[in-house]
Amino acid sequence: MVDGNSAKETGKEGLTRRRFTLGMLIASIAGAFGSLFALLKVLAPEKKGGGYATTILPGDVLVYAQGGSAGSPVTASSMKAGDAVLAYPTGKSSNPANLVQLIKLEEAAFKPPTDISLTDKGFVAYSAICTHLGCTVSWMANRESPAASFTECFCHNSIFNPAEGAKVMGGPAPIPLAQIGVKVMQDGTLAFTSDFKGPIGPQV
């Protein structure tokens, strides 16, 4: 009752001890959360040596990305129709966005939307980073009929058709793998001729 009376009295006067304390409380909570926002910004750095920014330049030679000959140039003669390897531009293997899958098919096998001008003697290259959740794609070679070979991501079984611009044939990947231009050089090695013709990695 006493409280009720004092509340009535204070209604006339405006500022009371209770309202002042309440205001203090709200202000301090707001202040505390405000400073927390600054902290959260600090804890989520914009960039720390990651992400998918490619650094491939035309003329970069393709080198094996893995296996015993990792780092040495891929030669055109080492691959026949239906083969594929993972490759990096030479000296730029520290950037995972630069990883490509170099595929050799029959020259007549390509259909739109493959950009034929970016292929050479049956060689075609696509980004090897799956557009679903960023795993590296694998080559499902078909020895009996090389044309039936395809690219698959083993993480969630997205399937891409290398003869049709890495079109999504199945699985959860939302967009094709980006094509990049390659050509066979005079010394039998392969070099890039362009940048990626589309976005790399997960589209999130």
Partner: peptide
Amino acid sequence: LKLVPGDLVFTILGGKITPET
């Protein structure tokens, strides 16, 4: 994740919903 069709992409109020989402 494997069952979500890849072409299920749309935007709500500026937020992009993808098969991954």
